[in-house]
């Protein structure tokens, strides 16, 4: 199967590398905005991963129509799609919150650099 590696990459390693990019951002970035972006990237990776789990080769969209009754097709797993919706909503909320927080921090401390903030903290 020639496209085995392709599906593996696009469904598993791809999303995971996106996740790792996000993680790398969190490990190295000192700017609050960049950290927010990193978190976002991480969430994208995770969401993509979840979606890809629902993939079933040559399956149809899991929509129950009259046509389905006649030939019993293979459905893609609908659950991950449902899950990911929730996850996206949550990640949007969190992102919004982080950004709001960043604004507040900036207005209060005048910087978004973590190293400078670290001195004020604690």
């Amino acid at each position: 199967m020639g496209h085995e590696w392709l599906s593996l990459w696009s469904f598993l390693y791809g999303p995971l590398s996106i996740f790792l990019v996000g993680l790398y951002g969190l490990l190295t970035q000192k700017n609050l905005i960049k950290m927010a972006i990193s978190i976002n990237i991480m969430d994208y990776g995770v969401n993509l991963f979840i979606i890809s789990l629902g993939y079933v080769p040559s399956a149809e969209a899991p929509i129950y129509t009259d046509a389905v009754k006649t030939y019993l097709p293979v459905f893609a797993d609908p659950l991950p799609q449902a899950l990911v919706l929730t996850a996206i909503v949550i990640s949007v909320a969190v992102t919004a919150f982080i950004l709001a927080l960043t604004i507040k921090i900036h207005s209060q401390y005048g910087t978004t650099d973590l190293t400078k903030l670290g001195e004020m903290e604690l």
């Binding site: 993680l23 969190l26 490990l27 190295t28 000192k30 950290m35 973590l114 670290g118």
Partner: peptide, 13 residues
């Protein structure tokens, strides 16, 4: 307990 955020992530990793 007195790391920067990056430090904690490092710790976790």
């Amino acid at each position: 307990f007195k790391q920067s955020i990056n430090g904690f992530i490092w710790l976790a990793v």
